[in-house]
Amino acid sequence: MNELFLILAVVLLLNTTVGLVRILSGPHPADRMLAAEMFSTSAVVIMLLLAFATDRPPLVDVALVFALLSALAVVTFVSRAWSALKPTTDTDDHDGGNR
């Protein structure tokens, strides 16, 4: 069972690392932000898998803090950065990004 948890953790990490390409290629700021959010969601799962695979209950608390604070990043993005970044998407992203 523990081995299964570890395999799942590695697969999830691989998956999100590939997903990080979205931060590189964008094109819209929302795409980059969602890639970061996918990472933090997966990090919660990876942390929980590690907690049970290696039998370390404190890691569940780390997962809890991850889950709470990933909401903060998205709320900041939506309420502050998104509207402010819209006029500058043309300079930030070469292909416009209006979808």
């Binding site: 709470l68 604070l69 990933s70 903060l72 990043a73 502050r80 950065a81 970044l85």
Partner: peptide, 16 residues
């Protein structure tokens, strides 16, 4: 708590 959460909010707000 600090690196991923609060700093991210601070930097994004400063960027805006």
């Amino acid at each position: 708590a600090i690196g991923a959460g609060a700093t991210g909010a601070l930097l994004l707000s400063a960027l805006a």
